[in-house]
Design a protein around this nucleic acid. Sequence first.
DNA 1: TGCATAGTTCATTATTTACTGAACTGTAAA
DNA 2: TTTACAGTTCAGTAAATAATGAACTATGCA
Lengths: 224, 224
Amino acid sequence: MENSITHIASLIGEPVRAKILWTLMDGRAYTARELAIGVETTPQNLSMHLGKLLRAGLLSVEAQGRHRYYTFARTEVADAIEAMANLVPAEQALRKDMGAVPIDYCRTCYDHLAGKVGVAITESLVRQKLLVYRDKELDVTPKGVQWFAELGIDCGEIRQQRRAFAKPCLDWTERRHHLAGALGAALLEKMLEAHWLRRSAQSRAVVATAKGRQALEAYFTVQW
Amino acid sequence: MENSITHIASLIGEPVRAKILWTLMDGRAYTARELAIGVETTPQNLSMHLGKLLRAGLLSVEAQGRHRYYTFARTEVADAIEAMANLVPAEQALRKDMGAVPIDYCRTCYDHLAGKVGVAITESLVRQKLLVYRDKELDVTPKGVQWFAELGIDCGEIRQQRRAFAKPCLDWTERRHHLAGALGAALLEKMLEAHWLRRSAQSRAVVATAKGRQALEAYFTVQW
DNA sequence: TGCATAGTTCATTATTTACTGAACTGTAAA
DNA sequence: TTTACAGTTCAGTAAATAATGAACTATGCA
């Protein structure tokens, strides 16, 4: 019923719910049971919290058999959580609070690549002048358009999407930028498709395959 | 002591504190007493809440005689609150919760112009091809650079600033974009300087002077 | 000096809200 | 149709925290 900025902030500002949202930041859908594992609470308590997030329009559910899959209702939710994360002083470790495994090396951030590898790739693309900073945004160069096309990514097509094309996203662990937006999402998708990377079972960590390591070294000179 | 995304969200998610932060969104410094008026609580309760916001690094104080002036510690705080505001469903009125006077006509949003007038000005600049949307960002055209220069605003200089140059900010009341970022702040500053606009005493409302009305009509065809 | 004002601190009370256990619905497999 | 599992709902209880009243510090002004 009641809905306001206060209400929404109070929803995020509760440890169990914050952990739920934090888990969902990888962009995948989770069942209540799966969420309960990372969050460490009882199913009925979790259900109560999910209900609140649902009623506030932050999450959406999709029923599949006896499972109910929860995801963010819209990308703005991830944006808001990101904005809050950027308020946390750098010295303070985020994962301490979130009780997650140390996934600072290679992980996803909502739907794009983050962590040391995400930052390294982004910085390599800038160094190679395939991406450039324009004000506080990122943009592909003509050379970059060609480069992405070789990977099967059509920049013109991605630009049509409603969401931001390519924006720098401040990395929580690295405190440096990695590539976000539609282009960042497309790049991660291609890398998973090409079996360079594989998502791990329960966390936001991503592991590189043997093939992937070679490719990443060749394309971006990412040190392993 | 403790500091995390949960902690920060819970700080924002309390009605009294949310109102404090909301008041400070106009970018000005307020004393505890001034804040108590809009927030409608006792000084000692307000002091408690201000202390919490202070310790979390969201606010900063400056003592001047027996007055203590509170402001946002950094612009990221305003960004985070904005991100939360954008999560509130459109049908829901924000000011209902915040108990403010209806200031949807002409008001400031942190340090730039918002409300009906803010939106009208921004849309006029786009219509006149002085500003253009690039992906999800705004940019000045060569013609726009010249136009801003006539107002005494050096776009090249503003671009040097660390903050975003020109970004569209979703207006809470209008649900349409107004100009934010360094350029938006510079424009408001110039308008106040030229006495086109005058800030009102306690609220975020801004009133146009006779001179200002004429100028706004001439430059932007803003209907009064 | 004395008094009013601005603001804070502290102990106590009141209120909110998250958690617990038990009972309940619906789907899947034996 | 029986058992197991996924998930929710609903009581009561427990824990966290915001508000209250009184006492306190510091500045400004007569």
